[in-house]
Design a protein around this nucleic acid. Sequence first.
DNA 1: GCTTGTATTAAACAGTTGTTTAAAATAATT
DNA 2: AATTATTTTAAACAACTGTTTAATACAAGC
Lengths: 211, 211
Amino acid sequence: MTQSTAVEPAFDRLLQVAVEVFAECGFREATVREICSRANVNVASVNYYFRSKEALYAQALAFAFREANRLYPLDAILDKGLPAEQRLTMFIGNFLHKLLDDSHLGLHSKLIAREIADPTKALDEIIETAIVPQFVLLVEIIQQILGASAEKLVVQRCLLSIFGQCLMFKHSRSIIDRLYPELIADESAIQASAEHIAQFSLAALARFAQQ
Amino acid sequence: MTQSTAVEPAFDRLLQVAVEVFAECGFREATVREICSRANVNVASVNYYFRSKEALYAQALAFAFREANRLYPLDAILDKGLPAEQRLTMFIGNFLHKLLDDSHLGLHSKLIAREIADPTKALDEIIETAIVPQFVLLVEIIQQILGASAEKLVVQRCLLSIFGQCLMFKHSRSIIDRLYPELIADESAIQASAEHIAQFSLAALARFAQQ
DNA sequence: GCTTGTATTAAACAGTTGTTTAAAATAATT
DNA sequence: AATTATTTTAAACAACTGTTTAATACAAGC
């Protein structure tokens, strides 16, 4: 027992701290020394347990995904028995809370958003395991609302319209913090913002469905 | 004449190359040596002409803004005589083309988007000179559509809904490139995407205006 | 032609980066 | 208890970072 705080094995501490630091700084700006320092392990540990900084990053991403699915399960939204409008509202609420969760375990979205905005080699796997399933789910919901006759391109553009509204709160967080902080001040404000996006999108989709 | 390619003075070349490299790599990842190498000047030139790497970045940002306003003037959109719906459509078209312009002079939006996603000290000035004026313009248009009785918070959320749809194409470009490349394949595809966003938003706003 | 101020250069600086090494400490196995 | 395997350590590595220096080249003004 070299470390008094070492209740968890070094490997696990390293992985958790890595998610934190990579989320804060991004892959390139994060340093192995900072990660090791926070995890109370020697600098050489990263290369001992994980082969390299890059391999640690890949494992940290995978770990963050597992946590995201554990904390924000999509179960209810997958229920095809519910009305599509309700499922869309639930989806947006779930997604926005996921994006704006600043708790110690909510760093995964920051990590993922970083990877999207500034891709590394790990992006392709992320798209496959995290993005595509969400896209597939939302495409299904949109198609249900627009009807079977909806063009594929229209469905895709509506998908981007909805995701774009949500992601605005993550990617442009720095602007919202400065100009409209009251929109994400607390839990109820976030909920209200989610409901706005749902209403805005449902209104637009309803018009598209008429045509 | 030490450099055969030195048709422009070193100062100007340095500034133009800086926009390129900072847009490609971001402030932190971009290196002074890379910038100097591409500009065919000595490593010491950055500190000679500009005080530091950070000062060069600030000047590169300012330069990028001047170029953006020169290439994509908002003149027509400022005309309050036009119908608000038409102005909104024009605004979105202008904004999306600005965001997706990949030409040699269109790097400014990449630079700005980078700064938003991963702010440096320079962000506050950017918000003041580039973001706020666009927000003010769009707020005015939205208010005109929703009517004078519209709540301030609703206007703000609609603003974010519209900006979010546009910025999706910039911030999540890496995903669109992989999953829906046909949406931004060429000029006409971009125009069609812009028109979709306009229709989507106008449909939603019309519903909001009824209430 | 000489002097003055500007521009450019190669070299070095001090600091940080990811990674490796080889020795020491600890744990597990026999 | 002795041997083996695993973990942890401090130190060094080579490569790279932004910045500084001091010497040189060049231009304009007198």
